[in-house]
């Protein structure tokens, strides 16, 4: 490895990864502009982190850690009988413990919560974000709409993944800031994505979670490498998967696009007039669409054609 190359998690031995997870400073990974320090004594979690985060740059011990998180088992008899896992941020425990086998999922949910609550320089929308030819596609939808599956499908077709969960819209510049993370897949979509062509690496499968069966797909290396490159938003899509549905993409008026996005924005009310202005600028810069579809084979080529058109 050349001396100036960025050290990634994959450059560390398993022993070194575990030593860092056990250390006070934690295993410090760069998620775009943020550094999260992860501490844990859970072996399966260490394996999951190695699987999903191999391409992520490792921050130095002298770099400021934005978000220290910790995942540990609960003590006492629970260690042996139906073990549980606890998530802590700055020593606080924002969630109830989960069954031990959901540790990786809990890390992902916990980090989502941390980023959502602390990235207050952005209008934060619950959406998948991808880039095509230098322009950004925002796909906003409530859980169960097939957003993450579609996101994985596009990422495997070479779209750059900015996030499968959070659109971070700059309040001053209106640009999309990437926060690439593993793509969260649920139930049938795990197998749907596994069958897609391309290099697919899945983390451990957690059963019987609050969202059913959950597994995470490792994000493409190119997306992780470009995690500091912001993007101008260009398209806003509200996808809705329906089994057997025909593929229909319809343009949407600005007012309706605005109101639908508000419904998916986490911190819109908190941001007051600033949030309104950021949302208005976003909607002005984009074309809005709704999409119904019954399979990835229909919708992926349709979006490739739609987003190939010059602005």
């Amino acid at each position: 490895m050349p001396a100036d190359a960025v050290q990634t998690l994959a450059d560390l031995s398993t022993g070194e990864v575990e030593a860092r997870l056990h250390s006070d400073a934690g295993l410090r990974l760069r998620f775009g502009r943020f550094v999260a320090g992860i501490r844990s004594d859970l072996r399966p979690l260490a394996r999951g982190i190695e699987t999903l985060y191999g391409d992520y740059p490792v921050a130095g011990d002298d770099d400021f850690c934005d978000f220290p998180v910790e995942l540990t088992g609960t003590g006492g008899l629970r260690r042996f009988v139906r073990p549980q896992v606890v998530f802590r941020f700055e020593g606080m425990q924002p969630f109830k413990p989960l069954p031990g086998q959901q540790a990786v999922a809990m890390l992902e949910w916990g980090l989502n919560w941390v980023f959502t609550n602390h990235a207050q320089h952005y209008l934060i929308i619950h959406a998948a974000v991808l880039e095509r030819n230098g322009a950004g596609l925002i796909m906003a939808a409530p859980p169960g709409s097939g957003k993450s599956t579609l996101c994985a499908g596009l990422a495997l077709k070479g779209w750059r993944l900015l996030s499968d969960e959070l659109a971070l819209v700059g309040l001053e510049d209106g640009l999309l800031t990437p926060l690439p993370r593993p793509i969260s897949l649920k139930n049938q979509s795990i197998d749907v994505v596994r069958r897609l062509p391309g290099e697919i690496v899945m983390g451990p499968v957690a059963h019987d979670t609050a969202k059913g069966t959950v597994a995470h797909m490792r994000p493409p290396r190119a997306s992780v490498d470009a995690a500091l490159a912001t993007v101008q938003p260009r398209w806003i899509l509200f996808p809705k998967f329906g089994a057997g549905s025909a593929c229909e993409v319809e343009a949407m008026g600005r007012a309706q696009t605005f109101m639908q996005l508000v419904g998916n924005a986490f911190n819109y009310p908190r941001l007051g007039a600033t949030g309104f202005e950021a949302m208005a600028r976003l909607v002005d810069a984009c074309d809005g669409y709704t999409a119904r579809y019954g399979s990835l084979d229909q919708i992926v080529p349709t979006l490739e054609a739609l987003c190939a058109r010059p602005a």
Partner: peptide, 22 residues
């Protein structure tokens, strides 16, 4: 203040200003 730390302080000032106006 280092830029990474400043991010969180500025965010706190932003949220506090919004808090006061609301």
């Amino acid at each position: 203040v280092p830029a990474a730390v400043r991010f969180h302080l500025d965010a706190a000032l932003r949220m506090a200003a919004l808090h006061k106006s609301s």
